[in-house]
């Protein structure tokens, strides 16, 4: 839908100011402006199967609930089954007619992702969407079972392996990578995806892996388009999630009054899965609008770096 020029201008100012755009203020202003993309139809996902990873906390719960509200059969993919079970019960209490199912998978472990994809793929002939929401911010540098830096393993390698393994079921469906505005501050580090050089910083590792998602998205989208799969990355804004509470307590104490709630943070993910027609593939989204992948020129990746990162991902995720 086209939006009037003053609306687009205001929206851009909100976006670049970060604080206004990424908080609850930005979302509320945008929702009130003309041209705000319409909500998906109330039964948009009736009878459709949707997977949400990291569904046992924060944005994952809100995403699962938002998708259930559109009629989807929601598959909660979690690492901790006990915690996931409690979340499932909670959602079921609030939405008695929701169809929910719990699965265990450690997205940071490629072998476990393949095991999970095999099981879920054997049971579901068609999957409408996967929302790759699972996230970590390791306080110390950590490695996955396959030796990848853990943020990179959970945010990039695992989601790609899972999507690849479920390509037949996903035909005509959608993939959403939950990214972060934190990636705006980091350039693509194709030279050091394992974060071996320099002093490890949890926020830098997190933001680098989110940058990697956004830089690889167009290439993944091209690959997956052959099966009619639409891929998107989105930025939830600044939401008051358990991840933020645990990893960024100071950021949270300053910004708390204007932080988004989980449903506001999940809004664009739910919209990307439910809206018709499917949004254009390979784009980065925030608040239901396509956004630039860069705000500052110094984070722009050269083509040599992008090729190098792609070669790394092809190897790490076993893309043939």
């Amino acid at each position: 839908m086209s939006r009037p020029l003053p609306v687009r201008a205001l929206d851009t100012v909100l976006d670049r100011s970060l604080v206004l755009g990424y908080t609850t203020i930005g979302l509320r202003v945008r929702q009130a402006l003309p041209g705000w993309p319409a909500d998906p139809a109330p039964d948009a996902l009736a009878g459709r199967d949707v997977l949400v990873t990291g569904a046992s906390s924060g944005l994952g719960i809100a995403t699962a609930e938002g998708l259930a509200a559109l009629g989807a059969r929601v598959h909660l993919v979690v690492r901790d089954e006990a915690k996931g079970g409690r979340v499932l019960d909670e959602i079921a209490r609030r939405r008695p007619d929701a169809e929910l199912r719990l699965w265990r998978c450690d997205v940071g472990d490629v072998d476990d992702v393949r095991r999970f994809a095999g099981e879920v793929g054997a049971e579901l002939p068609a999957i409408h969407a996967i929302v790759h929401n699972a996230g970590v911010m390791p306080p110390e540098r950590a490695e996955s079972a396959q030796g990848h830096e853990l943020s990179m393993a959970v945010h990039v390698v695992g989601p790609v392996v899972m999507t690849e393994a479920l390509r037949p079921q996903l035909e005509g469906g959608r993939v959403v990578l939950v990214s972060s505005g934190g990636m705006y501050g980091q350039a693509l580090r194709a030279d050091d995806p394992a974060y071996r050089r320099g002093t490890y910083s949890p926020t830098t590792a997190y933001a680098r892996s989110k940058r990697m998602q956004v830089e690889m998205l167009p290439l993944l989208a091209d690959r997956w388009s052959l099966g009619g799969i639409t891929a998107a990355a989105m930025h939830p804004g600044w939401a008051d999630t358990p991840g933020v509470k645990e990893s960024l307590p100071r950021f949270r104490s300053i910004t708390r009054p204007v932080l988004r709630d989980d449903a506001q943070g999940a809004d664009t993910s739910v919209w990307l899965v439910g809206t018709e027609p499917p949004p254009a593939t390979g784009r980065f989204w925030h608040d239901r609008v396509r956004r630039l992948a860069h705000i500052v020129p110094t984070t722009r990746a050269g083509e040599a770096d992008r090729a190098r990162a792609w070669a790394w991902l092809e190897e790490a995720a076993g893309l043939g």
């Binding site: 388009s225 052959l226 009619g228 390979g282 083509e303 090729a307």
Partner: peptide
């Protein structure tokens, strides 16, 4: 220089 082409399926044609 680098010349890069990304090709994706788009309806019955390509983007």
């Amino acid at each position: 220089g680098h010349d890069v082409l990304g090709i994706r399926s788009h309806g019955t044609g390509s983007e």
